[in-house]
């Protein structure tokens, strides 16, 4: 059974008097263990689709089903809980909580879940080791480089072992080398821990690493290629 099933998804925006169809009848299934890139030019709808899958936005029509639950039937609090328990997010501009240390940022989701302290510590230390930040636990985001910050963001996303991680242009703010390292890191996590990744990106490096590339054009899926 797929983790995510998208059926007939449409999302329209009102821009003045004009109605913009950001998504126009998208059907998509994402299986466990995938490492999928949503590609396409600006305005093709890839970020919109990612937000729909991430339960951050409501569709104009159509459905997104995660774990067999139709998101349109869930309340705001239930959507919060779903994101907390099942989803992880990585953003283009890292979006770490500035007042929390690297450790605390990574720990945040576990905190919200109410995981006990010992377990939290074990998992966070392990995750920080996985992303190569051992020894930097106490640094604040402002004391870390962009690449390090994004690694913390990855750690925050995977520490809770979500079913699906959604990454929106995770490498866009990083230099090429750092970008490569991050992709390698995520790929490794995907292979090692079977973490499912979905990217919205136009970074060729991501496309190279992806095993499935979904190309969007004008809010529709143009090509869906598996390697």
């Amino acid at each position: 059974m797929p983790i995510v099933t998208v059926r007939g998804l449409t999302r329209e925006y009102q821009q003045g008097a004009v109605t913009v169809k950001a998504l126009n009848g998208v059907d998509l299934e994402i299986e466990e263990g995938e490492f999928t890139a949503l590609m396409g030019p600006s305005g093709s709808g890839k970020t919109t689709l990612l937000n729909q899958i991430g339960a951050l936005d409501e569709p104009t029509s159509g459905t997104v089903v995660i774990d067999g639950k139709d998101l349109t039937t869930l309340s705001s609090a239930q959507l919060s809980d779903l994101r907390l328990q099942r989803l992880g997010f990585i953003f283009q501009s890292y979006n770490l909580i500035p007042v929390l240390s690297a450790f605390e940022n990574a720990e945040f989701v576990l905190m919200l879940r109410g995981t006990d302290a010992a377990e939290r510590r074990r998992r966070v230390m392990e995750t920080l080791a996985d992303v190569g930040l051992t020894g930097m636990e106490h640094r604040r985001p402002s004391e870390l480089s962009g690449g390090q910050q994004q690694r913390v963001a990855v750690a925050r996303a995977i520490a809770g072992r979500p079913a699906l991680i959604l990454a929106d242009e995770p490498t866009a703010n990083l230099d090429s080398t750092t970008g490569h390292e991050l992709i390698a890191l995520m790929k490794g996590l995907n292979e090692q821990h079977k973490v499912t990744f979905v990217f919205a990106t136009h970074d060729p490096k991501v496309m190279e690493a992806a095993r499935r590339v979904v190309e969007l054009e004008d809010g529709k899926i143009a090509r869906d290629t598996r390697k």
Binding site: L56, S80, D81, L82, R83, L84, Q85, F89, N95
Partner: peptide, 16 residues
């Protein structure tokens, strides 16, 4: 605003 949005994305409930 953005930070609060991120917190929401991470799964914090509005009440919290």
């Amino acid at each position: 605003t953005r930070e609060l949005g991120v917190l929401r994305a991470l799964g914090i409930r509005p009440g919290r």
